[in-house]
Design a protein around this nucleic acid. Structure first.
Lengths: 220, 220
DNA sequence: CAAAAATCTGACCAAACGGTCAAAAGAGGT
DNA sequence: ACCTCTTTTGACCGTTTGGTCAGATTTTTG
């Protein structure tokens, strides 16, 4: 489906294949997110997946193939929150929901966040085509949604791109910089109160930044 | 001085040593920020610095030694903006100045930003002691400054930690995710108008988030 | 200018790397 | 039981990596 896979992934998978591919992708996500593409080794990935290096290479033909498979596997989950931003909804509600979804992903899949961050920081050499052909159209579409809200007077003028970037920045920061946040506060998004405080802080800054007032009750 | 160096760095340096150490640190910053500690190679660093691998190892005893030297070299520049946050100043002015300084560093030293981001994302294995013994006291001190502003009614209640984290997130995002921002907008912090728009957007979100109104004129 | 010290390099080494291959071990069907 | 196809592994290969070392070259000093 997505532009990342293209290769690999036969039609029918045996139970063993399904289980072992999942084990490999899990272990690979963990290693690649920690050490980046160059820094990770298929030896360590295979050990983390509980099998020999040779066996890993039986399921994936090469190290880049594993990397691409991991990216393809988490890409949809990663793009879904932005896709749900609804032009016809109430701006305050839509943006609050978007931020809450992003925080949920950051809390539940911090390694995926760090993998993307790692890739982007290296200049996105392996996902540049995804950025250009999948993310950019989505980004342009949702920027237009925000622009329409501005033009119809629903929110104050703001550069839609910077609004999106700052939301990405704040929500993903809690996943990407988890170790620093933990060292400074002793807490992470894993703790309910911390995640709730972070979320409501971000929602308040975003909504007030465009002239709206956040609703008092339960952030998620 | 800082907790990072401790090793290396003799008292007197010849002109040749000074020049070559600077060349190495420059090249090392570029490589480490792109590929992380494991992914970078001293071979490539030495070539980028215009010398043989053996000569690099004449100036620094090992790969970790180079890495530590780079970190120590950029650490002060990195912590300076937060240090200048003045408890006795006007909150709106102090925070605006802080954000502008952070954006200046992100624009002028994006590789340093990415190097720190890379290190933190790996769990900060080599700078955890710096986080705990240098950054945390500073972080606690400045959190108290914000808390005092709240207690004296100068700004609306907000969790100081989340305020600081969101400022870090937004300002550093423009350096760390430069390639993605470039792919989506065709622009970067290097362009004046873009940097100005980003800065004023962040300042507006931060100040309004704590019940203040940003000044209209020239952001930097 | 000559001796001494500092600087620089290519050859070399052991370990780790990505990847191949033949063959062993296991699973499923008859 | 048997045969076949799938799964798994250890041994192995060529390359790259971090690092050492003896010696060549350059710079500084007397």
């Amino acid at each position: 489906m997505s532009a990342v896979d293209a290769v690999e992934e036969p039609a029918h998978l045996s139970r063993i294949q399904e289980k072992n591919r999942a084990l490999i992708l899990d272990a690979a996500l963990s290693e690649f997110s920690k050490y980046g593409f160059q820094g990770a080794t298929i030896e360590k990935i295979s050990k983390a997946a509980g099998m020999s290096k040779s066996n890993l290479l039986y399921y994936f033909s090469s190290k880049p193939a594993v990397y691409q498979a991991v990216l393809a596997h988490i890409l949809d989950e990663w793009l879904t929150p932005l896709r749900t931003l609804d032009a016809n909804g109430d701006p305050a509600e839509e943006l609050s929901k978007y931020i809450m979804q992003k925080m949920k992903v950051s809390a539940e899949a911090p390694e995926a966040s760090r993998l993307f961050a790692n890739e982007i920081m290296q200049g996105a050499p392996r996902v540049m085509s995804v950025l250009e052909h999948e993310l950019k159209p989505l980004f342009d579409e949702k920027s237009q949604v925000i622009q329409d809200w501005i033009d119809s007077g629903k929110i104050e003028p703001v550069d839609p791109a910077h609004l999106i970037f700052t939301i990405w920045a704040m929500t993903q920061h809690y996943a990407d910089f988890e170790s620093q946040i933990s060292a400074l506060t002793g807490s992470t998004l894993g703790k309910k109160a911390f995640r709730s405080d972070a979320t409501s802080t971000i929602i308040r800054m975003v909504l007030r930044g465009i002239g709206l007032e956040p609703a008092k009750p339960n952030p998620g």
